[in-house]
Design a protein around this nucleic acid. Structure first.
Lengths: 338, 338
DNA sequence: CACTGGCACTCCTGGACAGGGAGTGCCAAA
DNA sequence: TTTGGCACTCCCTGTCCAGGAGTGCCAGTG
């Protein structure tokens, strides 16, 4: 493939992203100084269409890029344009004001939405890869406890525990000491094994209670892989003259389904620094017309993903730069709070 | 105003809500057994229009209710239709599965959205009216603490505290004992006064730390009236052929603004059991074309509000019944967990 | 051999226009 | 007070037509 043909493709992608209208040969040869006439561009376009990189909405219309075309653009043509100094300052300032981890996430998601003018999705840091910092037991009634778990990512999880027999204040302190001795500092991945042995370590009269506690710990805290996600910028879906060919309906619905959002952010095992899924590269059916740009974040290892969702016709260089910059900065913050 | 005229109004409201199309005199006289001819209905309609209850989109079109018309319908004509037994069972089952207070809220908001086919908004229980159950201090680094507050509504709040000097484990225990002695069981409304005196009660060498702690407690926990809200069912905005005359844009934007949502749910002092704000009765400009149905909930006293947002042309009896039923049931749950 | 200008052709778009239909207001009669 | 009838208004839909943008192809040129 010719170098000039690539330039033509780039011109088409850039113009189409900017104007949202099919771009014709004349526009390409005029606006982008290729040094050739419109007729020549037409020949190249015919080639690019044949090769599947662009298409015509109808005869006698300009060309628009296909998913394959965008893919080529992203892989070989797009030069990522870094955030402006002002933007970078704004990101830092806004995130620095976060008061706790949850706040970091909600701020991040808003920031991404605002920066990219798209729908942003941020996964709360995954529990599985963090470890236990502290466990707290609070007795609500003699037969009812509140279990609070604090992880080293600053995450707090809380659960009610119904216990079989009445507990004294001392019993609660005993249990509290026990679970902390056993679990403090341990990775959540290792926790199930430890929890299984908990009941056996308690005083005989507390065995039943300890095993109730163990059950709750295991069931709802450790085994809980259902992870939360924050969403912002849904209003941006209506930008650019509601971009999804069909209605907004299925998209809005999908955005409220946690399962779908997790799929959107990609399987947890993907450790790639940054992924771009264009159009039908996407697994989720409702997002076949969309592009998703995601990045992993975390202190050292990846503990979660964030990303934005937009039309395939998006400003790739800008979006990619924004997602990458924000992910990096959030990682830094987590690093500091380690 | 004639009885029959009211019946005509009811017929118009009901048909319009069902079909979303202006309803004409013939339709009214045929579908609703009023025992009068279309011509008579026309006379009544002329009267109702004169009085401002209905209006014509244009000459030679049927009539649609005005906000004033809906208001009359709600106040005098709509008989609330209770939920079906199956619906009631579903509500109970779904909410009973909640694992903690946050989960109650997220489940509630989904439930409301599903039940009413509208956008649902639920305020997390307000801190101001609850009291302190327990305070926990966890040292993260020698100069950094995590403060966790648990309230009697089961709510957990967490904050980082930077302290001026390094603390030993014993110092932390001391502080923990101090704040709990002072604040446990106290209403959050009374807390600021108590917190002000905290530093004075600490050991001399812990004064500086205690006052840092007090500042965080006061600043971010107690004075924090910014309250969280959960939203669900945004996809329902596109139901009924995107009902808002203009674009969805401003609505979607407003739904992401917590401040706006709080306004939507009404000022906290409103203790009315159930309010219906129709069209321009609404304070928020973006919702002038919408109706908001809200209810307070809480164990005994109101600790939060929930509601749904939909087109003025909504199924009032059904919506009101759903909001009321859900609010009641959530209140019951809170009562039990007291 | 690659590039260019010219030209016929296709197809979308927007405005104009007419016919059909739904619904009204008014009037005279029961 | 109610009713049937009738003229009138206005929206909606489909059709038609002209304008415009863009293409594909071809023959000519360096």
């Amino acid at each position: 493939m010719d170098d000039r043909k690539l330039e033509v493709l780039r011109a088409i992608v850039e113009d189409y992203v900017a104007t949202q209208e099919p771009v014709g040969s004349k526009a390409v040869s005029q606006r982008h100084a290729l040094g050739v006439s419109a007729a020549t561009v037409r020949n190249d376009m015919a080639y690019l269409e044949e090769a599947g990189y662009i298409q015509q909405p109808h005869t006698s219309a300009g060309r628009i890029p296909t998913a394959k075309g965008y893919r080529l653009f992203v892989d070989r043509l797009g030069k990522i344009k870094p955030l402006s100094a002002a933007e970078r300052r704004a990101v830092h300032r806004f995130l620095a004001e976060a008061i706790d981890l949850d706040d970091v996430v909600t701020r991040t998601v808003r920031l991404l939405a605002q920066l990219t003018h798209q729908v942003a999705v941020v996964q709360y840091p995954s529990l599985n890869r963090s470890s236990v910092r502290h466990l707290e037991l609070v007795s609500l009634t003699p037969t009812r406890l509140m279990l609070v778990m604090i992880t080293d990512t600053g995450r707090v999880e809380q659960r009610y525990v119904e216990v079989p027999s009445e507990l004294t204040e001392d019993d609660v302190l005993d249990l509290r000491r026990l679970v902390n001795e056993q679990l403090q500092g341990k990775a959540l991945a290792d926790a199930p094994r430890i929890i299984a042995g908990l009941a056996g370590l308690a005083r005989p009269e507390l065995r039943a209670t300890a095993s109730a506690l163990a059950r709750v710990l295991l069931d709802s805290v450790v085994a809980r892989t259902e992870e939360r996600v924050a969403v912002a910028g849904a209003a941006n879906l209506t930008r650019n003259g509601n971009f999804f060919a069909g209605s907004l309906r299925p998209i809005l619905e999908a955005l409220e389904e946690e399962v779908v959002l997790m799929q959107l952010l990609g399987r947890a095992d993907s450790n790639a620094l940054l992924t771009v899924r264009i159009g039908d590269e996407n697994e989720v059916a409702d997002f076949r017309e969309a592009t998703v740009v995601t990045a992993g974040y975390g202190p050292g290892s990846v503990v979660g993903h964030m990303g934005v969702l937009g039309p395939t016709r998006m400003d790739y260089p800008g979006t990619i730069a924004a997602v990458r910059a924000v992910a990096r900065y959030v990682s830094e913050i987590l690093e500091q709070n380690r």
